[in-house]
């Protein structure tokens, strides 16, 4: 499982980066990079996203 970013929706604000307990998300200029190996799909970032651009996916 990991988190998928809807690039068309994302406003690359970095709020998700600040709340990720596993330091699995990074804001690289204008896109969000998720490290699948570190992500534990806790979905805190999904909840925090002001614009609804994140989603937990996979299994």
């Amino acid at each position: 499982m990991t988190v998928r970013v809807d690039r068309y929706r994302c406003g690359y604000c970095g709020a998700c980066v600040g709340v990720c307990p596993n330091v699995a998300i990074e804001l690289v200029e204008t896109w969000i990079a998720v490290n699948d190996e570190l992500c534990e799909s806790c979905s805190i970032c999904v909840k925090i996203c002001p614009i609804g651009a994140l989603e937990v996916v996979g299994g």
Binding site: V19, V46, K47, I48, C49, P50, I51, G52, A53, L54, E55
Partner: peptide, 14 residues
């Protein structure tokens, strides 16, 4: 601004 613990995905923009 919505407190994170009371928010849901996309709530602020909605």
């Amino acid at each position: 601004g919505v407190l994170g613990s009371r928010s849901e995905s996309g709530m602020p923009i909605e």
